[in-house]
Every structure is written in structure tokens, then in C-alpha cells.
Amino acid sequence: MGLTIKEIVLISLLSYVYSLDRHSTQIAGKITILYGALAGLILGNFKQGLEIGATLQLMSLGVANLGGASMPDYPMAAIISSTIAITSGKGMAAGMAIGLPVGMLGMNFDVLVKLINSAIAKRAQNFAHKRQFGKMTRTIPLATLIYPLESTIPVFIAIVFGKSVVQAILDFMPQWFTVGLNVAGGMLPAVGFAMLLVYMPLEKYGYWLIVGFVATAYLKIPVLGVALLGAAAAIHLYQSIANKKVSNQVSENNSNLTEEDMEDE
């Protein structure tokens, strides 16, 4: 394909900036159309890039990335689709034929990046324990720098090697591997929640877990609704503990008084 080295670098850089912003400053993470248009601008065909981005933007409506779940990466697909469409001259369909599968592939790499982040987090905490706070604060942003590679690497491979290589990689990866990564992505949040529970006073208040679970699993109440119920329970508990303390103090004071009174008598 007729891409100059300068164009390859700029497009790769665009995908890096996209992913960096999407996960940190979060200004344009959902503006798929912008990335189609910017890729078009780099390659000298703003209008076609804009139209491809617009098409993918409309496809992505309503698809959100929530609670750490993995979702297709539409802006990444837009960058690749625009690039392929413009440089191959074969139009939107040819571009999206590569852009969309790679966008789907990107969501699987998400799981891998989050595993690398685990190692970085652990390292940072070890530095904290050793009182090496400078090293700790320098270690954490490594995650920020590494994270965008999940977009840059697939985009680079897709625009440099094109459809044949992408197809070969997709064919080479057995289906169970991609399904497995997906399943793992659904299961792994459980580890974090289990860890949270370890720190909560479950012996004392564990039964509220059932209330929260039933509310969402059976009654389909969204988390905000459950939190409002939880707030009601919390207010009730707070008042009863606070009142108990007050009445204990009052009764202590009373008994002190009576003892003193008796002594006086």
C-alpha cells in the first residue's frame, strides 16, 4: 500500500494519542468520527475519513465500555478503516473489512494490558513498603505509557501489513483462545470484588450482601437504586448506634450521680 514512513508514524502516533486520551483525560474517547477524520487529514482526504468515521460512529451508538468490561474499539477501527480505504483507493467497504476485525481484536488485548498493570501496581506497592516513595510515584505512570500500546500495535500491524497478515493472525489464533480471553475478561472482576469483601466487616454485616445481590440479580435494580436502599439502611444503623451511645452515656452519668448522691447521704 502506498503509505510513506512519515504517514505510518503519524497514524501510529494518532492511535497512541487516541488511546492515551481515552483512558486518561477522556476528552475524545467516544468521538469515533474525529479519529476517522484526523486519519483522513493526515493522508490528505479529510472528507472520506470523515464519512468513514461517521459511519462507524453511528454503528457504535449505545455501545458503552462499562465497569472494566471489554468492548469493540470503534475509534481504533475508524483510524484503520480510513487509512486502508484512502491508501488502497478501494473505498469504505475495503477499509472496514480490516478495521472492524482489528477493532474487535483490540478488545482482547485489553485483558492482557490489564494483567501487565497488575504487575506494575504490585511493584509500586512494594516500593511504598520499602519507603521508596519516589520510585513508587515513578512506577505508576509506566502503566499510563504502556496502556496505549494496546491500540498502537494492532493499528501499526494493520496499516503496514494489511489484510493478508491480519487475516493470517486471526486464523492463527484458535477460537478457544479469543473466547477464553473474553470469558476471562468477564470473570476477572470477581477477583477484585472478593478482595474488597476481605476488607469489609462481613462477620458483622455480611447479610446485607444478600440484599444487594437479590436486588440486582432478581429485581434488576441498577446499582444506584441499590445504593439508595443501602443509604437508607446505613442511616438507620447510624442513628441506632449513635442513639445507643448517647443513652449509654446518659445512664452512666445517672448511675454516677446516684452513687455520689448516696455517698452524700
Binding site: 468490561a69 468477564g186 470473570m187 470484588f193 441499590v226 443501602g230 444503623l237
Partner: peptide, 23 residues
């Protein structure tokens, strides 16, 4: 008292997000 009370809120929320987030 506040600490205990918000822990109840937290535990209920975890019960809820286990159902909505873990797949």
C-alpha cells in the same frame, strides 16, 4: 458509627455489582 453505617452501604453495593459486572 459512621464507619459501620457506610460499610453496610458498601456491602450492599458489592452484592449488587457482583451480579451486574461479573459475567
Amino acid at each position: 458509627a459512621f464507619t459501620d453505617a457506610v460499610s453496610v452501604l458498601g456491602i450492599m453495593v458489592i452484592g449488587s455489582i457482583v451480579s451486574s459486572t461479573v459475567n
